[in-house]
Amino acid sequence: MTTVATSPPVTAGGPRKGGRVKRWVVPGVLIAVTITWLVPTLGLFITSFKSRAASSQYGWWQVWQGGWTLDNYNEVLFSPSLPPPGFADNFINTIIITIPATILPIAIAAVAAYAFAWLDFPFRNWIFLGVIALLVVPLQVTWVPVLKIFNTLNLTGTFPGIWLAHTGYGLAFAIFLLRNFMADIPNDLIESARIDGAGNVKIFTRIVLPLSLPAIAALAIFQFVWVWNDLMNALIFLQTPDKFPLTVGIRNLLGQYGNEWNLLSAGAFLSMIVPLIVFFALQRYFVRGLTSGAVKG
């Protein structure tokens, strides 16, 4: 009769069962996937330290052939021969685009997710279903209508325009993820806060938001990397070269020099630095069992 919605706290490192083969299946698959994933990146990394001649003459795996050089990085960052606005400006543009385009959708999604998870309003589940349905709409079909609207509103070629575009594209998944996470917070905790005198605003800011940090951190990384690496939306909605982000800059490296993989790889590596920093900064919030201790599991 007491209805208690509790999810048992995740306990890490339970006893392993099964034989020797079984025990190695999961790590084996993980290692294979990791290697498959890392090899091209490693190739790119090595290429970025090779001269143009060396990179066309030897394969990247011939690591010690052709010598090492920092010229590629020097050229990408400082060469006046690159078309304006240049790599540094691209970098600043990317930051201007990415930060609001990460914060906005998560902020909106967090509030919406709380409502979907914990407030009672008409058609709640149908509206949520509608949000989930948006996940399957291909991005490509939205470009023309959205661009038309942006043109009418004079948002094309502006930073707020691309912020809005990324916010819109990111919201459906963000709401979906956060709502499911928030719905797993034990009901007793919310009711306890209600009895303690908290209204919805306090419950959201003091209880639900702090407890949702792992999901928000995961989402932030996801959205940040997605926007940081986005090329198509920037090309479509920004259109003006002085507002173009890194991705467009890197593509232009390729366009101008044809097969100059050495420059491209250096540019790509430079563009990876910030997402890596973001990832390592936020990964400490992936705390397992953040709600452990709340309720007896």
Binding site: T2, V4, T6, P186, D188, L189, E191, S192, A193, R194, I195, D196, G197, A198, G199, I207, L211, L290, T291, S292, G293, A294, V295, K296
Partner: peptide
């Protein structure tokens, strides 16, 4: 609930973790 001036102890304790 917040205006009823009551306090409740839950079966699961429901402490804010």
């Amino acid at each position: 609930p917040k205006d009823r001036d009551i306090a409740m102890v839950f079966q699961n304790y429901a402490l804010y973790p």
